[in-house]
Design a protein around this nucleic acid. Sequence first.
DNA 1: TCTGGGGTCCTAGGACCC
DNA 2: TCTGGGGTCCTAGGACCC
Length: 414
Amino acid sequence: MSAPAILHADLDAFYASVEQLLDPALRGKPIAVGGGVVLAASYEAKAFGVQSGMPGRRARELCPELVFVSGRFDEYQRLGDAAIAVLGDFTPLVERISIDEAFADVTGSVRLLGPPEEMATRIRERVRAELGLPISLGVASTKHLAKIASQVAKPDGLAVVRPGTERDFLRDLPVELIWGVGPVTKARLAERDIVTIGQLAATEERTLKRLLGEAAGEKLSALSANRDARRVVTGRRARSVGAQSALGRKPAVAAVCRPTLLYLADRVASRLRAKGRAGRTVTLRVRFADLRAVTRSITLPAAISATAILAEVAVDLLRAALADHPDERTLSLLGVSVSQLEKNAALQLEFPLRLGDEKRRPGTGKGAARWAADRAMDKVRARFGRAAIGYGSTVLGEGRAVPDAFRALAEREL
DNA sequence: TCTGGGGTCCTAGGACCC
DNA sequence: TCTGGGGTCCTAGGACCC
C-alpha cells in the first residue's frame, strides 16, 4: 500500500455561491444570505469585513451596497449533497463534516484512478462543470494536513502537501490554523511566545499539558509534530440532539417559557422519533439578559422521545435554574437538548411520568397515550408539512431570527 | 464591538462501588 | 477502624467547530 492519501473538500462561501449560481445578476456583487443576521457572505462581501453571524445592520454599515437575499435552503441541501456525492465516485471512505465540507480517504483508489492530486483536480473540475460551484481541495497524508491545505487553497484552489514535506509545510503557519485552537488557546500559547506551529512542535508535551490540560496538550503536541492518526470515518452518528431559540429580551414568566420550551421540545423529540431514537439525559440551557449562560441537566432512568414528557422535564429544569439565580428575571435564550441516545424508542413507554410513579406496562397509561398522539401528529406533518399541526410553533413561528429551514441544514444525521 | 443555531469533546468535583 | 487507590457515572461549565 502506498502512502496514505487524504482529501479535504470545502465548498467556497457555499450559500452565497449557490445564490450567485441561481441568479446571474448577483454574480460579482457583495451579497449576504439572511436578514437580521448574516448566515453567509460572498467573497465580494467578505472583502468589506462582512462575516457570518454578524448582525445585518452592522454588515450594511461595513458594505452599503450589500445585497441581502433570503435564502433557498432546499437548494443548499441538494447542491451540497451533489458535491459530496462526487467524492463518493472516487472512494467509499467519505466522512461528511457539514453541509459543505468532507474528508475522503483515496489511498485505496490510487492504483485504479491515479495520483491523489489528479483525483483532486478532477473532483474540482466536475463540481464546477456539473454543479457550477467553486470548491477548494487539500491533499495530504493526514486529515489534519488536508484540512489546513484546503484552507490555504481557498478560494477555488488546490493545495498539495507532498509526503515528507509535512513538517516544513507546518513550521511557519500560525497555531490557530490547527483544528481545535481558538481564541483562548491561541492567547494562552501567545503568553509563552508560542505563535507558530513550528514553535508548538518544539515545546515539551509536559509543558503543553500543564498549560492546556491533559487532552488538549496531547493533541496539540501530536498535531504540531505531524502525528495525526485519525482515520476517515464513514456513517458517524450524532451523540446529541438539540434546539435553541434566541428571545431578544423576555421576562422569565410562564407565558413566555412554556410555549417556547414546548416548541423546542417538539423540534427535538420529533427528530428523535423520526429516527427511532430516544435519549436519557435532558439539558436545558438558559442565557440571561447579560448573556451569561447556565445549564441544568438530568439523567433519567430510561430514554424518552415524547414531546410532552421532554417539555415537562425542561420546565422542571428551568424552574431549578431560575431558583438558583433569583436576581435574573430576563431571558435572552432558551435551549433544550437530549443526549445519551439509545436506539430503542419504545423504551419510553415504560418511563414513569413522575418520580415515584410505579412502572407502567408498555402500551398503557399516559406515557403511551402521549407517544401515540405524537406519532399521529408526525404522520400528519409528513403528509402536509410541519406547520399543519403542532404545539408551540405557531406561537413563535413569526418573527424569529432564523427560519426553520436553516435550522434543518445544521442538523446532524441521527 | 457579543451575534444565530446545531453540534463535539474535555475538565473537575462529588457520589458511589470495589 | 483508618487509609489508600482505581473506576464509573452524573452534573455544570467551557472551548471550539461549521
